[in-house]
């Protein structure tokens, strides 16, 4: 018992430290900015989650170019999970989408987090897309790299060669404004953290730029989920270490315990729907190189898959 307690202690501490103020996004968006410092993991046994829920995945460059917690969320993916039908829908929100921000005014949607943290990002998505977000997970660059390395890499069929002469050299460099050349070749392969990051982050060599890498991000997310099914509790120490300071989430430990068995039961890749908001859902020409949203097309789509 003591061992089990201490075994999960680092994970619990990491989650507590990084989550700090747990953002409660249910039941009302007005609670978005309230904190629950007294939140504690439930002592009752984990009950299976049966109702559908929606999670907002956020990914950020968090190198030294940015002030801590004032980062842009260059990856925003809404994930809807329906346990009863074992359906998963992933909708990538273009980071350059020009929207009404929850903190006031208009701007690129990736700026919402930098103005008001996860609460502002969630509120912006909820008000503009008309969805309800139950929880969020934010991951920094280094966290994703370390996570993929900690789980021993992932298998991905990279859809195309990703070649970039101007890939930001900001992760392990003391000068975060430099560039490096990267080449991730195409086809089935076992990616380590660095190469998986290059695959999902590079956009200069892709005609669809951010939309193209959104597709790649979804591929890698699904590969991580697939790999997670193969792991054992013995891998948790490495994973909790990997996430030190690079993960924030509103999901409490008790809910994680509920989600783990659920994740293993989703084994039909055809039941995973992937949506990218390319044309005609978005088009260029908005201020600062951002994208205008075609809400007449987006909202029916969102309401269909995120009711």
């Amino acid at each position: 018992m003591a061992g089990a307690f201490a075994y999960f202690l680092p994970a619990a501490k990491a989650a507590w430290d990084t989550t700090g103020a747990v953002v409660r996004v249910t039941p009302s968006p007005t609670d978005l900015f309230t904190t629950s410092p007294t939140a504690t993991p439930s002592a009752t046994p984990a009950a299976a989650i049966t109702g559908a829920f929606t999670i907002l995945l956020l990914g950020s460059d968090d190198d030294s170019k940015f002030y801590s917690d004032h980062v842009l969320t260059q990856s925003m993916i809404l994930v809807r999970v329906v346990p009863s039908s074992k359906q998963v829908t992933m909708l990538s929100i273009p980071r350059d989408l020009y929207v009404h921000l929850s903190t006031g005014g208009f701007g690129k949607i990736d700026g919402a987090y930098s103005y008001g943290g996860a609460g502002a990002a969630i509120a912006t998505v909820e008000q503009d897309f008309g969805v309800h977000v139950d929880d969020y997970i934010w991951v920094g660059l280094l966290g994703l790299i370390k996570l993929i390395d900690a789980i021993g890499g992932i298998d991905v069929v990279t859809s195309n060669p990703v070649l970039d002469d101007y890939y930001p050299a900001d992760i392990y460099s003391s000068w975060p404004y430099g560039y490096e050349r990267v080449a991730v070749l195409a086809g089935p392969q076992h990616l380590d953290g660095i190469h998986a990051m290059q695959y999902v982050r590079s956009r200069h060599g892709d005609l669809q730029s951010d939309l193209g890498r959104s597709q790649r991000q979804q591929q890698v997310l699904l590969a991580i989920r697939q790999k997670a099914k193969q792991l054992s509790p013995a891998d948790l120490p490495a994973m909790s270490t990997a996430f030190g300071g690079e993960l924030k989430t509103s999901i409490g430990l008790s809910k994680v315990a509920q989600l783990l068995p659920l994740a293993g039961s989703f084994d039909n890749p055809d039941a995973i729907r992937q949506i990218i908001l390319a044309s005609p859902y978005t088009h260029g020409g908005a201020p600062d190189g951002s994208l205008f949203a075609n809400w007449d097309a987006i909202l029916p789509l969102v309401h269909q898959y995120f009711p």
């Binding site: 089990a4 789980i151 021993g152 509790p233 013995a234």
Partner: peptide, 24 residues
């Protein structure tokens, strides 16, 4: 003391037992 020692040793022991899929 038992909690700390037992927990730490359990953590270190399990941490050294990575699953096969995560092993290099």
């Amino acid at each position: 003391v038992v909690v700390v020692l037992g927990g730490t040793s359990t953590y270190m022991y399990l941490g050294s037992k990575q699953s096969r899929v995560a092993a290099p």
